Measured scan of single mutants.
Amino acid sequence: MAAGGDHGSPDSYRSPLASRYASPEMCFVFSDRYKFRTWRQLWLWLAEAEQTLGLPITDEQIQEMKSNLENIDFKMAAEEEKRLRHDVMAHVHTFGHCCPKAAGIIHLGATSCYVGDNTDLIILRNALDLLLPKLARVISRLADFAKERASLPTLGFTHFQPAQLTTVGKRCCLWIQDLCMDLQNLKRVRDDLRFRGVKGTTGTQASFLQLFEGDDHKVEQLDKMVTEKAGFKRAFIITGQTYTRKVDIEVLSVLASLGASVHKICTDIRLLANLKEMEEPFEKQQIGSSAMPYKRNPMRSERCCSLARHLMTLVMDPLQTASVQWFERTLDDSANRRICLAEAFLTADTILNTLQNISEGLVVYPKVIERRIRQELPFMATENIIMAMVKAGGSRQDCHEKIRVLSQQAASVVKQEGGDNDLIERIQVDAYFSPIHSQLDHLLDPSSFTGRASQQVQRFLEEEVYPLLKPYESVMKVKAELCL
């Protein structure tokens, strides 16, 4: 049975990233139509530049190519590739079939990587351009969430054990800070992308030097003109047959890092959902379990974690691919890159769409948070109580021993009897502590235990987050809708 299948058929496997999760716009960027249309555009740009620099290419040939950029006979191309065992030459023939007058000058002087690699770089750039505003929107939604809850005390956790208090907004800023680093890295790697350009079979530009009869300047002009037509500021000066596969490492490393950030955020949300302090959106008709109707599973956060793990592992592909590119190139890269580049971007696209949807509907339960604080705060307040007693004339050592005994009794009630923490009640009825009984409410005010959390939130948002989001103001209103 021949390899390949009808990918629109229910009898043929289709990647869930495309069929179930990723956005239509990201799927289109990695589609065959987008790819092969870009090949034709690159052939047109090459012909236009070659004509401008004096090669015998007519206006009629150029116009014929322009008129057929979208006229792609995919069936013919597939048949040609089956016959020739070469995808680029299959599309040269297919393009030439609908451009008979231009057929002889299509791909003039070029090698397969002229269309293959340059198209990949265009796709990487455009895919990054799709991700950047999506990530900015996630940051914006979380920034709104953090600002609104900047002063809401909550129990902090280290080692997932109760620690000092923080605020809900401050905790959210930990998430935002990681995503801001990801946004900066995505922008950097996007701006650092260079075009492969017009380089020939081993990167020496020998074929173009021959076409222009040894004119170095025209060869350099050709490279520059096509690079500018493709919208790049610069091209690699040095290439082998391909652009260095280190570029793929750079791009997928940034995406993998984004995956790590999203995994951490969504894990926190899942843990908070278990504590009943916070939940992701839950639709009115949504079913959490087929057997347990009360369940409210954090399905979206779980999906993000599941896909983020996949995204983090994909960076190993370009690392290994770059390491086995012998001399000017081997074909070890080809099949692998067809999979890992598309999957990385479709996965990143999915987790950003999902995280935006989550961040637009996060639900906080202040009463649950308050109750958990009441359970733990008495123990945390013991040092403040000791200091207040010393100020009232008591002995630190005597007070410490009193607190120690009462704390152990209260802990026994919590752990052995399943009761509430009654340390404060014990202190309130103990005559030894009568000098500070009137101060206990103040000493137990949760806001006095959150330090500068709310001020940190305000400063972080104003100095770091809002300036970073400013270039994306025009796209901030787009909502994230999930079908599944």
Rank of each mutant, 00 (worst) to 15 (best):
V115G: 02
M181S: 12
V315K: 03
G419K: 13
L132N: 15
M380S: 02
D398Y: 13
L209F: 11
Q164W: 00
L17S: 10
L311W: 01
Q428M: 11
R371G: 04
I436W: 04
Q164S: 10
V198S: 08
E302A: 00
F36V: 15
A411F: 04
F30Y: 11
I436L: 07
L46M: 07
D422W: 10
Q408F: 08
H7L: 13
Q221F: 09
D216G: 15
D332R: 02
M380L: 08
E463F: 13
N185T: 12
L443F: 06
M181F: 14
V363S: 03
R372F: 03
A47K: 04
V88M: 12
G259L: 02
E283G: 11
K66G: 08
H159Y: 01
I237P: 06
L155H: 04
K35S: 06
V390K: 02
G5D: 12
L469N: 04
R374M: 07
Q320E: 04
L124Q: 07
F145H: 06
F160R: 04
T330D: 02
T227L: 05
M292D: 00
G361D: 14
L352A: 10
L440C: 09
P378H: 00
Q375W: 04
R329T: 00
I269G: 03
V414T: 05
R245I: 00
L341I: 13
K170G: 03
S31L: 02
K199A: 13
A260V: 04
T239C: 09
L193R: 03
M389Q: 09
N384T: 10
V138R: 02
M387C: 10
L121N: 11
I122S: 03
A335K: 00
Q439S: 08
D317K: 03
Q210K: 15
L179M: 11
M476Y: 15
Q221C: 13
Y432A: 13
I427F: 13
H86V: 00
F74G: 12
E220H: 14
I72K: 03
M380G: 02
L362E: 07
K170T: 01
S151Q: 11
A256C: 07
M476Q: 15
P56R: 13
P298Y: 01
L275N: 08
S301T: 10
E81P: 04
D349A: 12
V390G: 07
H217G: 10
Q439K: 10
Y294K: 01
G4F: 15
D120R: 06
K295I: 01
S334V: 01
F74K: 12
I57P: 04
T52C: 13
L55D: 04
V475C: 11
N421S: 10
D144L: 15
H400N: 02
S290H: 00
I287A: 10
K101D: 15
G361L: 13
L423V: 04
Q210W: 00
R245Y: 01
E328W: 01
V219W: 01
C305T: 11
G240M: 05
R404W: 12
S434M: 12
R426Q: 09
I373Q: 00
N297I: 01
F433Q: 03
T204K: 00
L406R: 06
I385K: 03
V465Q: 06
N297D: 02
A47V: 07
L341M: 11
L468Q: 15
L468E: 12
E462Q: 15
M278T: 06
D215K: 13
L484P: 06
N185M: 08
F36K: 13
H400W: 00
L131A: 13
L42G: 00
E370D: 14
H400T: 02
K477I: 15
S207L: 02
K134S: 10
A388E: 09
A411E: 06
D349F: 05
Q439R: 07
S395N: 11
A3E: 10
R426D: 09
E148V: 10
K415V: 09
L331Q: 03
Q320T: 11
T347D: 09
C180W: 04
S447P: 14
L131H: 10
L252N: 11
I105C: 14
L271S: 03
Q41R: 14
L314D: 04
R171Y: 00
F232R: 01
K264P: 04
R459W: 10
I122Y: 11
L355V: 11
A18N: 13
Q458L: 11
S207R: 01
Q241C: 02
D6V: 11
